[in-house]
C-alpha cells in the first residue's frame, strides 16, 4: 500500500488551473522527487498535501486516510512534515526552541500542565529538550542551538528547518527545493543528510531544480509541466522520455 496517494488532484485559482488531474503514489521508505519548470504546479501540490489549499477536485490519501479538506495542523499531526521554498523559521526563537516547537504534536502537556509545571510536564520538557538536541546534532547544528534562527547562516537555516520538520517524527517529509542556494560541498552534505533521514524510516518527497541532485538521489521521479503530469518513473527512464526532453528543451534544466 502506498504511503501517499494523490488521485486526479486538480487545483484552480479563479480561471487559472495550477494543477490539473495529477495522480501520484509514494511508497513507504522511498526517496521520490517532483521536477518541472517554474509554474508547473509543484509547490501547489505540496500546499494541497499539507492542507493550505483544499483541492478543487480529486482525493489525497495518506497512510490509508483521506486528508484533503483536513486542516493543516491535523495533517501535520498525522505524520506529514515539510520545509518551505523560502525558509520559514521562527525568527526570534532559538534554534533549540524551533525544534522543540516541531515536537508540539507529539507532546501530551495540557493547559493545566503548562500553567502549573506539573511533574509530568517537567519530565516531558526534559525529554523534549533532549530529543531536540539530538536532532540538532543530527543535522550538525549542536553548537548553534541557542542562537536565534534569524541569525544563523543561510545553509544552517535550511538544516534547522529540516531538524524542525523531523521533530514531529513524521512518516513523510516534504522538502521544497532543499538545495537552493547551496554550494557544491553543502550540496554533498545535503545528499548524505537526506539519505540519513530515509534510513531513519522517513519517506521523502522533494521538489528540486538541481537535476543532478535529483538524478543521484531519487528512486522515482514525477515530471510536471503546466500543471499536468507528463512523466513518471525511475531516473533513467525519465531522462529518456521524449515529453520530458521536449518540456525542458526550450528552457534547459537550470
Amino acid at each position: 500500500m502506498p504511503l501517499l496517494e494523490l488521485d486526479s488532484v486538480t487545483k484552480t485559482f479563479g480561471t487559472l488551473v495550477a494543477v490539473n488531474g495529477v495522480s501520484l503514489r509514494i511508497d513507504s521508505g522511498a526517496i521520490a522527487a517532483m521536477i518541472g519548470p517554474n509554474g508547473a504546479g509543484k509547490s501547489t501540490i505540496f500546499n494541497a498535501i499539507t492542507g493550505i489549499y483544499a483541492p478543487t477536485a480529486g482525493r489525497i490519501v495518506f497512510d490509508g486516510k483521506r486528508i484533503d479538506h483536513e486542516p493543516t495542523y491535523r495533517i501535520a499531526a498525522s505524520g506529514i512534515a515539510r520545509t518551505f521554498q523560502n525558509i520559514r523559521l521562527f525568527s526570534f526563537m532559538s534554534a533549540l526552541d524551533n525544534v522543540m516547537v516541531g515536537e508540539h504534536a507529539r507532546l501530551r502537556a495540557r493547559l493545566w500542565d503548562s500553567l502549573l509545571h506539573t511533574p509530568a510536564q517537567r519530565a516531558e520538557e526534559r525529554e523534549t529538550r533532549e530529543r531536540a538536541r539530538e536532532l540538532l546534532a543530527f543535522v550538525g547544528l549542536e553548537r548553534l542551538s541557542e542562537r536565534y534562527a534569524r541569525n544563523l547562516p543561510y545553509g544552517s537555516q535550511r538544516h534547522l528547518e529540516i531538524a524542525r520538520a523531523l521533530a514531529s517524527l513524521p512518516k513523510l517529509l516534504l522538502l521544497d527545493e532543499p538545495a537552493a542556494g547551496m554550494n557544491p560541498r553543502e550540496r554533498q552534505d545535503l545528499i548524505a543528510l537526506i539519505r540519513g533521514i530515509r534510513d531513519r524510516g522517513v519517506t521523502v518527497l522533494l521538489i528540486e531544480h538541481d537535476m543532478g541532485l535529483v538524478m543521484e538521489l531519487a528512486e522515482r521521479i514525477t515530471v510536471l509541466d503546466h500543471g499536468e503530469r507528463i512523466a513518471e518513473g525511475a531516473p533513467a527512464e525519465v531522462r529518456r522520455d521524449p515529453r520530458v526532453i521536449e518540456a525542458y528543451l526550450g528552457a534547459p534544466a537550470p
Partner: peptide, 29 residues
C-alpha cells in the same frame, strides 16, 4: 513564567513568528 517555558508558550511564540509555519508543526492555531 511557567507558560513561557511550556508547550503552550512555545506554540504562542511560534504563532507570533509565523502562523502558517506554526500550523505545519501540528499547532491548532
Amino acid at each position: 513564567r511557567n507558560l513561557r517555558e511550556s508547550r503552550l508558550g512555545r506554540a504562542w511564540m511560534a504563532i507570533r513568528e509565523d502562523e502558517l509555519a506554526a500550523r505545519h508543526m501540528g499547532i491548532n492555531t
